[in-house]
Design a protein around this nucleic acid. Structure first.
Length: 510
DNA sequence: GTAGGGTTAG
């Protein structure tokens, strides 16, 4: 079978440490009862567990029932945990489900694949396909979408394109609107907007009707594409309205979210007044503004440093009964930091953070990243350090951005030794460094005149195929000009310069 | 009972 071809390579790479392959493959077909006697919980409880502890307790209870609750209930619980982003716990629970011989199905497998992907183990996710086949679960569009999203998530856009084309050519799966939307997002991620728009045309040709999400995405990328300079701004706006017209032509009315994209686009260009106009049109059209509409405008105010307006809007949302979520809090906190970084604002940001209390809103690593970065940019490294410790104490795992902002903060204070130590700790903590981490540390070394370390790091970057960002590059060239660095390094540096910096925008010739 | 659009690092 053709699909075995897709599996063969990735299956070999399957790492047993994530999902114990042998164990999974040995688990015989289910003997889980079709009759569900676990009815004392209302239906919704599996989908609405409040936190990880509750979910794990519920899972224990369910596991002890005989006969076992249905796979639907197990899967719903699995999904709740996945939505809370406890991906490793989901995988653990999946293993337990298999041990209990729950007859896992398409729903279960698409969740498991998503978990692997979110943990940056997309190769393992592909290997999970082998498990599906052994269980006679023929991958469907949900499973393939999850895999495609995994490749996009890992920035393996070329791979995702190949995979997507393979699915179509070998008739393994006819992509639906969500899958096209994922592929379009991937293409946009690497600035391949032209191809993204071609794909929009292709999906129409193939009889798949783009929906508001696809159009919103296209409008979004047309609006915020930084590759196109100011001269093309007008074109972008025209193109955006053409899209709106097309949407009307195919009978999709712009909804709140479509307007949201326009609000967002205006805000990102610093045109808050125009964004306000759009909001007013929405109000005229009696569209109910949702948390996303406000979120975009909030972001607009913050980016334009109109912090008072942002705070007013933030409070207005509460008055209108809209619930703040992780994104609105993050945006507001970020805004408070983005001001003049004076003590007053740092305090305000921190008090907002504490105001949230003990909810999941202040257990979000993104919020911590913003706070840590903000605090260290305000010169309050001690606060940044405390936040970093708090995060770990809460059982949250710092991600690559957390480490990068911490390393950057340490270097800013000249604590390069500590920065280096943290940098080395990353790999052991299961959070490998990326190109940004390298650039941050490299800048730290340069600023602190540690030229031997600079050279060593450049070689490591070469080995990992990472590239230099514009700031690091110019700092390196300055040091070479000043003869602090040997000009024999130029060849190595040349290898580390990304093509975009040399030639400007690249458009795929395909 | 499944998936895709709004927040973070150089």
């Amino acid at each position: 079978m053709a699909i075995e071809m897709i599996l063969s390579k990735s299956a070999l790479k399957f790492r047993a440490n994530l999902l114990t392959t042998n164990y999974l493959l040995k688990t015989p077909f289910s003997s889980s009862s079709n009759v569900d006697h676990f009815e004392q919980h209302p239906q919704s409880i599996y989908q609405k567990v409040a936190n990880l502890d509750d979910a794990l307790n519920l899972f224990d209870q369910m596991s002890q029932r005989r006969p076992l609750p249905s796979v639907v209930k197990f899967t719903q619980l699995l999904q709740s945990i996945t939505k809370m982003k406890h991906f490793s716990h989901s995988l653990y629970m999946f293993n337990q489900m298999c041990a209990l011989r729950v007859r896992v199905n398409h729903y279960t497998m698409s969740i498991i694949i998503k978990c692997c992907c979110q943990l940056y183990h997309t190769n393992d996710a592909f290997a999970v396909l082998g498990f599906c086949f052994r269980r006679c679960i023929v991958p469907n569009v949900f499973i393939f979408s999850a895999l495609l999203d995994g490749l996009v998530h890992e920035d393996r856009i070329l791979k995702s394109e190949i995979f997507f084309k393979k699915l179509i050519k070998q008739k393994l799966c006819e992509p639906n609107v969500v899958m096209y939307s994922t592929m379009i997002k991937g293409l946009c991620k690497i600035g391949n907007n032209v191809i993204a728009i071609q794909l929009l045309r292709l999906m129409v040709e193939r009889g798949c009707k783009p929906d508001v999400v696809v159009y919103s995405n296209i409008i979004d990328i047309l609006c915020k594409d930084k590759m196109i300079d100011d001269a093309f701004k007008l074109f972008k706006e025209m193109e955006a309205s053409k899209m709106l017209q097309e949407m009307l032509d195919v009978g999709i009315s712009p909804n709140v979210q479509t307007f949201n994209i326009l609000v967002d686009a205006f805000c990102k260009e610093g045109k808050v007044d125009e964004a306000e106009d759009v909001i007013n049109i929405m109000i005229e059209k009696r569209l109910v503004l949702d948390v996303v509409s406000y979120s975009s405008l909030l972001n607009g105010y913050c980016k334009s440093l109109k912090i008072d307006e942002a705070m007013d809007l933030f409070n207005e949302m509460t008055r209108k009964g809209l619930k703040h979520d992780v994104v609105t809090y993050s945006t507001m906190i970020q805004g408070l930091f983005q001001g003049l970084c004076n003590n007053h604002q740092l305090e305000e940001a921190l008090s907002l953070f504490h105001l949230v209390g003990d909810s999941k809103l202040n257990s979000d690593v993104v919020v911590y990243n913003i706070l840590i970065d903000g605090a260290s940019k305000c010169g309050k490294l001690d606060i940044a350090k405390t936040l970093f410790e708090n995060l770990t104490n809460k059982g949250l795992r710092p991600n690559v951005r957390t480490y990068s902002v911490m390393i950057s903060g340490l270097c800013r204070k000249g604590l390069v030794g500590d920065a280096k130590e943290l940098f080395l700790k990353m790999e052991d903590s299961g959070c490998p460094q990326n190109s940004v981490t390298y650039n941050v540390l490299l800048q730290g070394f340069l600023k602190n005149k540690l030229y031997d370390d600079v050279e060593m790091l450049l070689h490591e970057m070469d080995g990992r195929c990472y590239s230099l960002d514009a700031t690091t590059l110019s700092m390196l060239l300055d040091q070479i000009a000043a003869r602090s660095l040997d000009n024999t390094l130029l060849e190595l540096i040349g290898k580390l310069v990304p093509k975009e910096l040399m030639d400007g925008p690249i458009f795929s010739p395909k």
